[in-house]
């Protein structure tokens, strides 16, 4: 069932929801990396950032005046999180529960 397959997003959706307000760096599949405050995230893992700045500004001059942005979830490669923003044990447990299907 296609619909069931997308259940896996749910764990990360609620996980990212807890990270709202923290500073993250989102690296896209086109190598563009953007740092900003996580404003919101939805169930497709679309991300909205505020006070953004591009990591390699010289390479992307057109991003100079972008302050807030919406990133489509399907183009995200990595999200770099603040070290203290990760509760590894909690994530472990949740991921295992999810893997067991309960």
């Amino acid at each position: 069932m296609v619909l069931r397959g997308f259940r896996r997003f749910r764990l990360f959706f609620s996980y990212f929801k807890d990270l709202v307000g923290q500073e993250v760096t989102v690296e896209l599949k086109n190598d563009l990396a953007i740092t900003g405050t996580l404003h919101s995230v939805d169930q497709y893992l679309n991300i909205k950032l505020e006070n953004t700045r591009v990591v390699d500004q010289d390479k992307y001059p057109h991003m100079l005046s972008v302050r807030n942005c919406f990133i489509r979830g399907s183009v995200v490669r990595y999200v770099q999180l603040p070290p203290d923003g990760v509760d590894v044990d909690l994530l472990h447990d949740a991921a295992r529960r999810e893997a067991r299907g309960g």
Partner: peptide, 9 residues
């Protein structure tokens, strides 16, 4: 779409 950015006027 990859990204939609609001421009700071």
């Amino acid at each position: 779409v990859v990204l939609i950015g609001e421009l700071d006027v």
